[in-house]
Structures are given as structure tokens and as C-alpha cells.
């Protein structure tokens, strides 16, 4: 009995210790493990917040099969940088108020964070942010992609993003005429 009781207590202690841990471990599709602050994960990702609240976080690494290691590393990096960049008073605000805040221009560190990414890394990060319900990271990454379109002609946009032009010449001309108010006539 005493042994059982001891085991029970040990189990209880382990559970309490897990609940008290201030980080969560995430596992990428290719099996790499990353640790992230539980507070930042819950505040920045609605999906992770739900998993933490629902107790479905695996101590040995929560499987995120849709996210590769490079994208997950960037997600974790973003969470850590975000946690460091916010004054402690702001942490008191709930995740709901954060997620419903109106869009703000990316801050300087957020610009630098996305500027260093390659096309593929940026695109993977958009998909990861969308999958994890990270509204702010989604805003920042989408803003970066929209900046890549700025000042470019439709032809240049197609070239940069490898988009097929599915208009016929006639359709294109018709739309151009419809939108003539926005452009000088050639």
C-alpha cells in the first residue's frame, strides 16, 4: 500500500510539475523539437491556447504535422521575440483583446524579422501562422508579401509570384478599359 501511495504521490507531483512548466514542447513534421514559452504561445496562437487549456499538450513534444522545422523555428523565434518586446504591463491584457485589436503597421523588429526570410520561408510562415491561428504573425507576414507587390505592374507581379495569366487579350483589354479611370491611357 505504501509503495502504491508513494507512486500515486509521485504521479501527482509529476502532473503538478507539468502544469507548472512555463514552456511547451512542439514537434515539427520532420520530428524536430522546439520549446516555447507557454505564456507567449497561449497569447499569440489561438490553436495553442486551446490545446494548453484543453490539456492536449504532450510533454514529449506536441505533434504539429503540418509545419516543417524551419517554419516552426521561425514561429518559436517570433513568439520569443514578441514576449521580449512587450512591456510587462501589456502582458496583462487577454489574448482575446490582442487578437481583436485593429491592424497596426509592423513594428521595426517585426519588419526585420520577416525581411531576413527567403520567399519559401516567408510563404511557409504564412501557412504556419494561419494553421496555428496566430493573427498578428499572419498580419505581419501578409503585409510583407503585399509589399513585394507594391509599385509593380500586373506582369511583374505574375513574374515574381509565378502566376499564370488566364486572361485572353480581349478580356484584358476590356478590363483595362473598365479601369481606365485609374491609369493613363497608353
Amino acid at each position: 500500500m505504501e509503495v502504491d501511495k508513494g507512486k500515486g504521490e509521485a504521479e501527482e507531483t509529476r502532473k503538478v510539475a507539468e502544469a507548472d512548466r512555463d514552456t511547451v514542447t512542439l514537434k515539427s513534421s520532420d520530428g524536430k523539437l522546439f520549446e516555447v514559452s507557454k505564456e507567449a504561445a497561449a497569447r499569440l496562437s489561438t490553436v495553442l491556447a486551446g490545446m494548453i487549456a484543453g490539456g492536449s499538450i504532450d510533454d514529449n513534444g506536441t505533434d504539429l504535422k503540418q509545419i516543417g522545422s524551419e517554419a516552426l523555428e521561425n514561429v518559436v523565434d517570433y513568439c520569443n521575440k514578441h514576449a521580449n518586446s512587450i512591456p510587462s504591463a501589456a502582458l496583462i491584457s487577454s489574448s482575446i483583446s490582442f487578437n481583436t485589436a485593429p491592424f497596426k503597421e509592423p513594428e521595426e523588429w517585426e519588419r526585420k524579422f520577416v525581411d531576413r526570410l527567403s520567399h519559401d520561408a516567408l510563404f511557409d510562415l504564412v501557412e504556419a501562422a494561419n494553421f496555428l491561428g496566430m493573427e498578428r504573425l499572419l498580419d505581419v507576414t501578409c503585409h510583407k508579401i503585399s509589399e513585394m507587390m507594391k509599385g509593380k505592374s500586373p506582369d511583374q507581379i505574375r513574374e515574381v509570384f509565378n502566376i499564370k495569366n488566364d486572361y485572353t487579350k480581349e478580356e484584358l483589354e476590356e478590363i483595362r478599359q473598365e479601369l481606365a479611370w485609374a491609369f493613363y491611357d497608353d
Binding site: 509593380k152 507581379i157 505574375r158 502566376i163 488566364d166 486572361y167 484584358l172 483595362r176 479601369l179 491609369f183
Partner: peptide, 8 residues
């Protein structure tokens, strides 16, 4: 207008 000229 520019975006709408990219594709359908």
C-alpha cells in the same frame, strides 16, 4: 485595379 489585372 492592378491586382485585378493579374488573373481572373
Amino acid at each position: 485595379p492592378c491586382a485585378s489585372l493579374v488573373c481572373a
